[in-house]
Nucleic acid binder design. Structure first.
Lengths: 189, 189
DNA sequence: GCATATATTGAACGATCGTTCAGGCCCTCG
DNA sequence: CGAGGGCCTGAACGATCGTTCAATATATGC
């Protein structure tokens, strides 16, 4: 009768967590609220995720994937265009949604309180910077690796600020200026 | 017998909130935990602060004061040095402590979930940018006001990133490069 | 069709939450 | 001295929390 596409309830639960975390913060994420939001029973949440901590961990890993994907080389492009594409992507309206940014902020805040969350976060940041440095190295092969690392770090600072500023009060003009500044840093010399 | 300096217990309670919020996030801030941390009874917390919301509000206003003070003109200096001092102050180890940064992050995260917290936050950011723009205007009188505003916005982006990056993994070198970049932006032309 | 495994439910547990409140302490003023 | 008011305490309330678990439904393999 109804669509026989089987729903992956574990995925439904994770999406509910992301939604609640983004909209209401960690205080809004109770096992019962998650169950209600996902449209499943309370018991099922604990069935698919051992406890609340592993639920949050799953959310962290989900965001991590998205972030790393930002610096995934787009092999269809030339190295320099590849780098430009990655730098522009962070300001893409598709990524710069309040939901995504707020979620990031909540996860950062959580990482401050729990050591293992912080580890996941730090690891992700390292991978992101490494990906960015690799893109810069490919676009400017004459640069020594540590210079690429420096530039990647500088760009990371601005991008973090860009994300945060976008969240606290979207200001499209200053965001696009910041993106331009990132390109200057990356491609200078 | 012992020191008869009367302790201001209301202040003790607020400091306990700031400490707990910074170290454990909002989940660690219960009325009982605050009372324990401040060394007072549970009832007293509700006596001095109507409810938990007004406790958080007090914490927000406290941080707001500190932020605005950063761009308070230091009248002992010449305009340009005054601006430089303000820009350097944000990277001062005295301000760049994990406790302070984490506290900021937690409050930002809270602002995402509660509308009135967000209002306080937005207001504070506006005041901060205005203060920064005024400093720039004083150091470069030939600049039109809207150009000062633009530069203040750009610097705000980088500073937000600087704070966030410092929190996620302190990297002194990239922080001082970012401070230098802020000076360039402010004093260009 | 029957057994076996997996997925799902909701009641129940003890712990902790925010808030209320009756009462005790201490200082001040008449 | 005694009344009154601000400060402070801890017990108590009902609500909600995370977690457990026995029971049921659904799918899978023989």
């Amino acid at each position: 009768m109804d669509a026989d596409e089987k729903v992956d309830r574990q995925a439904l639960i994770l999406e509910a967590v992301l939604r609640l975390l983004s909209l209401q913060g960690i205080s809004g994420v109770s096992m019962r609220a998650v169950a209600r939001e996902a449209g499943v029973s309370l018991g099922l949440v604990n069935y698919h995720y051992e406890d609340k901590t592993s639920l949050i961990r799953a959310a962290l890993h989900r965001i991590e994937e998205q972030d790393i994907a930002l610096v995934e080389p787009d092999l269809a492009l030339e190295p320099e265009e590849r780098l430009r594409a990655a730098l522009t992507r962070v300001a893409d309206p598709e990524f710069l949604t309040t939901e995504y940014l707020s979620l990031r902020l909540q996860l950062w805040a959580l990482a401050q309180a729990h050591e293992d969350f912080e580890r996941i976060n730090t690891e992700a940041q390292k991978r992101y910077r490494a990906g960015l440095a690799a893109l810069i190295g490919a676009a400017r092969p004459e640069l020594p690796p540590d210079e690429c690392g420096k530039r990647a770090a500088d760009i990371d600072v601005i991008q973090n600020g860009l994300w945060l500023t976008a969240l606290l009060g979207l200001d499209r003009a200053s965001i696009s200026r910041s993106v331009a500044r990132c390109e200057e840093i990356a491609l200078a010399g």
